[in-house]
Design a protein around this nucleic acid. Structure first.
Lengths: 150, 150
DNA sequence: ATACACTCCGTACAATAGTACGGAGTCAAG
DNA sequence: CTTGACTCCGTACTATTGTACGGAGTGTAT
């Protein structure tokens, strides 16, 4: 196995060298020490996996701050297990909520696509319409008043 | 129904007035005309729904640019239906991919939580480990030092 | 041993997504 | 008709998430 320099890691992870450094500066990946013999830093291959995870989580709407929290979850006997469980559970709930929302949009898009060739059979004209009518395409769903927010 | 001013819309949507204006400037919501009688702009209630959709889509990792695309999808007989279908399908594929990724993280978190009290039964020590081992516990590829981080 | 690519580090610049501010206009209650 | 809250609009500032640049050091292939 060739020595993993920062550019190899970056290539492996599909990001630029500067991005790796940026993640190092922000504590998302650990910067390996410079070898005592001098020269360039050598990276463990796992770093690339870690970065790929970061990018994936970003695509799913997590901020770097949140991703850092995700990555800091460890079932390490040395740390408090109950705490890890609790934090993991919070993230899990969030994920489950997001999946549900995602499925809402999925259904809406499917409705939109289905409404396309029939032209007018459904009243679905935009993705908003497709979402706002969860199931019942019955009349007068505009009467609901939503005071739900804050 | 009282006249929806911008601050009512903002409150209804759970955002600040400035955010509404920002979305207007960027074409995500349409700015209603000033009444010919003069005075303040009056907003249709749907604007609040639209903004809530924007916020939701953002949470799911879509940029405002992408959300604008989503919102511009319309099964309008006047526009090319095949085009709408195509663009909707692209978004749909993306959503489906994201849901799959999300489920990957969900499973990883569940493994992490499961590994917590048993302590050592599973080798899952971080969320990365929980993700990188899809299900086959192919021995000792991952067995090396995982002491490196934090 | 020299060329050349790559590392290292600091700082600067950039895009996205807001948030804040200030001054002038408007509305509605007292 | 005054007062206070809100609108309108422009501009400026902020946070997050990177990208780019420049100069000095290092590794390596020829």
């Amino acid at each position: 196995m060739k020595t993993m320099t920062i550019s190899k890691i970056a290539k492996e992870a599909g990001v630029g060298v500067e991005t790796v450094r940026f993640y190092e500066r922000n504590g998302l990946v650990q910067q390996p020490p410079k070898p005592s013999s001098g020269g360039f830093r050598v990276y463990p291959v796992e770093t690339a996996e870690r970065i790929r995870f970061i990018r994936q989580a970003q695509e799913l709407g997590f901020s770097l701050r949140e991703i850092k929290e995700l990555l800091s979850l460890r079932t390490d006997p040395a740390t408090d297990c109950a705490d890890v469980r609790e934090r993991a559970q919070v993230k899990l709930d969030e994920i489950i909520r997001k999946i549900a929302q995602m499925k809402g949009i999925q259904t809406a898009l499917e409705k939109l696509i289905a409404a396309c060739p029939g032209r007018g059979a459904l009243q679905v004209c935009s993705i908003i319409d497709a979402i706002e009518a969860p199931e019942k395409t019955k009349t007068n769903l505009k009467k609901r008043k939503r005071k739900n927010y804050e």
